[in-house]
Computed example of a mutant assay.
Amino acid sequence: MTNNKKIMSKLFYHVLISIFGFAMVYPVLWMISGSLKNNTEILNGSLSLIPPNFRWENFVTGWSGFGKITFATFFKNSFFITVVATIGTVISSACISYSFARLRYRGRKLLFTLMIMTLLLPGQILLIPQFIIYHRLGLVPSMIPLILPHFLGQAFFIFQMMQFMAGIPRELDEAAFVDGCSRYGIFRNIVFPLLKPVIVTTIIIQFYWKWDDFQGPLVYLSKPQSYTVSIALKLFADASSRTDYGAMFAMSTLSLLPVFLIFLFFNKYLTEGISTSGLKG
């Protein structure tokens, strides 16, 4: 009897989780399904995930873009901004977190406090002052304002890396220092390789945030040739003419692939702990 209760309990648990999981992923599935429908089939209110007719031409129409600018250009712009900004975030945040966690110098606590305080500021408050600064520097319109700040450290990731770095024994630093290794050498050869799990987490989160960013490109980019995917998708919704929802859903579906592939590729590293990074024994 006890075994039957355990089996029923597990069955109920898995059914309940499956229902919740399907409810969460259903909007994405509906969007993918909509990429193979025409406007009438999308707007008729049907919840069916199976298109009456598979309209693959939506992908061709969507990829052709606007004004002789194809979505290949928009994807290229998004990839460039996202990849460079992510690399900058990882390098700068790792260096700054090492400074706060491992070095001792005057003003360190004050700088750390000021950095934490920046987490309390909504991005919208900084938008106008930053725009004025970049405009006076002659960097607007361009992609530089979307990339440059990420080479100066990101408070959230700095704090995240500091917390992870606190678990790395200082004896490793001391042993390397005794062997004649400099502070830079200790960071490059010992600490940075051990940060792999938190670096992977940073890559996934930052890539997703930057790829999905709409406000930044909207403010700093004015030429269609420099638009990102997030801005280009908005161009499908035209109040003065007929919106092609099928093409918009088709390009939205393609825009999910980079984020999905990044997560799929790096997912196996998320579960790696510090014990797999050379600290055993």
Rank of each mutant, 00 (worst) to 15 (best):
K10L: 10
G246F: 00
S241N: 14
Q225S: 15
S46I: 01
V219C: 01
A239V: 12
Y184L: 15
K6W: 02
L254R: 01
F263T: 05
M24G: 01
V140Q: 13
I203G: 02
F157L: 04
Y105Q: 03
E41D: 15
Y269D: 15
Q160C: 06
I147T: 03
I87R: 06
D213P: 07
A176V: 04
T228H: 11
I147P: 13
S48K: 06
N267A: 15
S142A: 11
I144P: 09
D173G: 05
V140D: 13
L139N: 10
L111K: 14
A155F: 05
F159K: 05
K223G: 04
I42P: 00
D179Q: 04
H150P: 00
L218N: 06
P258Q: 10
R104P: 02
S99I: 02
M143Q: 14
F151N: 03
Y26K: 09
D244E: 08
L137D: 12
F75S: 07
M162K: 09
F20P: 13
F177K: 12
G65V: 04
D213R: 03
S33M: 02
Y245G: 00
N58E: 01
L119Q: 11
A72N: 11
T201F: 09
I87E: 06
W209I: 00
M162I: 06
G185A: 07
N44L: 02
